[in-house]
Computed example of a mutant assay.
Amino acid sequence: MCGRFAITLPPDAMAQLFAAAPANALPEVPNYNVCPTNDVHVVWNADGQRRLGAMRWGFLPHWYKTVNGGPLLINARGETLADKPAFKAACRARRCLIPASGFYEWTRDSADNRLPWYIHPARGEVLAFAGVWQDWERDDQMLRTCAIVTTAANSSMSRIHHRMPVILAPDDWSLWLGETGKGAAALMVPAPETALDFYRVGTAVNSNRASGPELSEPLGT
């Protein structure tokens, strides 16, 4: 599961890191509270060239008659990605990378209060989530949309949540993007135990209207 994340890397640095040609209009950064239906930064391969552009976070299958025509698909389970009608075509032909500086998950206390955690790379400054994307058109409206692929949590993350995004190492980006043959299914596994660190943050991030760097600061600092 991934329902909120942060991205702080400037677009020119993202373009350089992913060797991608950036679009003219990209979402503003830093954003410490990226929420479903927001536009997010996405890297994909088009005609042999990596692109960095914006997509709506919330995958819209082609049969949705409106943007609210079905469940909001922000995540796609890696275990069933190739079989689910919503995702199976995108799994074959439209895979992407979604950069993030970190993401949030929640536990609950004995009073059922939601307690947020910030999960971030143990080394480096960016994560690359595996994603799939889809163009959706109705009448004169066209949206390019995406979802984050998830897998079972590793043992460290399972203390917080039973699912986690598929996080791809740089050596695997080309395979996921379809640039180096087949075998991408093997990448849909939990990140290594040492790949991530996490800590509690304040409950301000529980609101989708909250913003600012304080959202990702350790609780009590």
Score class of each variant (00 low, 15 high):
residue 10 P to W: 08
residue 11 P to V: 00
residue 11 P to R: 00
residue 11 P to K: 01
residue 12 D to K: 11
residue 15 A to C: 06
residue 16 Q to Y: 06
residue 16 Q to C: 09
residue 17 L to E: 10
residue 18 F to K: 01
residue 20 A to S: 01
residue 21 A to D: 10
residue 21 A to N: 08
residue 21 A to F: 04
residue 23 A to N: 11
residue 24 N to H: 13
residue 28 E to I: 12
residue 29 V to R: 09
residue 29 V to Q: 11
residue 30 P to T: 04
residue 30 P to D: 11
residue 30 P to G: 03
residue 35 C to H: 08
residue 36 P to G: 15
residue 37 T to E: 13
residue 38 N to K: 14
residue 38 N to R: 11
residue 41 H to W: 13
residue 43 V to K: 01
residue 45 N to D: 13
residue 45 N to H: 09
residue 46 A to L: 15
residue 48 G to S: 06
residue 49 Q to Y: 05
residue 49 Q to N: 14
residue 49 Q to M: 12
residue 51 R to K: 15
residue 51 R to C: 13
residue 54 A to L: 07
residue 54 A to W: 07
residue 54 A to C: 10
residue 55 M to K: 01
residue 56 R to G: 07
residue 57 W to M: 06
residue 59 F to S: 07
residue 61 P to L: 00
residue 61 P to D: 02
residue 61 P to G: 01
residue 63 W to F: 06
residue 64 Y to S: 08
residue 65 K to N: 14
residue 65 K to Y: 10
residue 66 T to N: 09
residue 67 V to C: 11
residue 67 V to Y: 09
residue 69 G to H: 05
residue 70 G to Q: 06
residue 71 P to R: 11
residue 72 L to C: 13
residue 72 L to S: 10
residue 73 L to G: 04
residue 74 I to R: 10
residue 75 N to C: 02
residue 75 N to H: 02
residue 76 A to W: 03
residue 76 A to R: 01
residue 76 A to L: 09
residue 77 R to A: 15
residue 77 R to H: 14
residue 77 R to W: 14
residue 77 R to C: 15
residue 82 A to Y: 06
residue 83 D to T: 12
residue 83 D to Q: 15
residue 88 K to R: 15
residue 89 A to M: 11
residue 89 A to I: 12
residue 89 A to Q: 14
residue 89 A to C: 08
residue 90 A to E: 04
residue 93 A to T: 13
residue 93 A to M: 09
residue 95 R to M: 04
residue 95 R to C: 04
residue 96 C to D: 00
residue 97 L to P: 08
residue 98 I to Q: 00
residue 98 I to V: 14
residue 99 P to E: 02
residue 101 S to P: 05
residue 101 S to Q: 03
residue 102 G to I: 05
residue 104 Y to P: 04
residue 104 Y to K: 11
residue 104 Y to T: 03
residue 105 E to D: 11
residue 105 E to L: 12
residue 106 W to V: 08
residue 106 W to H: 08
residue 107 T to P: 08
residue 108 R to E: 15
residue 109 D to Q: 08
residue 109 D to L: 07
residue 109 D to Y: 08
residue 110 S to V: 12
residue 112 D to L: 12
residue 112 D to N: 14
residue 116 P to W: 07
residue 117 W to M: 08
residue 118 Y to S: 01
residue 118 Y to D: 00
residue 118 Y to A: 03
residue 118 Y to H: 05
residue 119 I to T: 08
residue 119 I to A: 09
residue 119 I to W: 04
residue 119 I to Y: 02
residue 119 I to C: 10
residue 120 H to A: 13
residue 120 H to Q: 13
residue 121 P to C: 05
residue 124 G to E: 02
residue 125 E to W: 00
residue 126 V to Y: 01
residue 127 L to V: 03
residue 127 L to A: 02
residue 129 F to C: 00
residue 130 A to E: 03
residue 130 A to V: 04
residue 130 A to H: 08
residue 131 G to K: 01
residue 131 G to E: 03
residue 131 G to M: 06
residue 132 V to R: 05
residue 133 W to F: 15
residue 134 Q to S: 09
residue 135 D to G: 15
residue 136 W to R: 04
residue 136 W to V: 00
residue 137 E to L: 10
residue 138 R to N: 10
residue 140 D to C: 12
residue 141 Q to S: 11
residue 142 M to R: 15
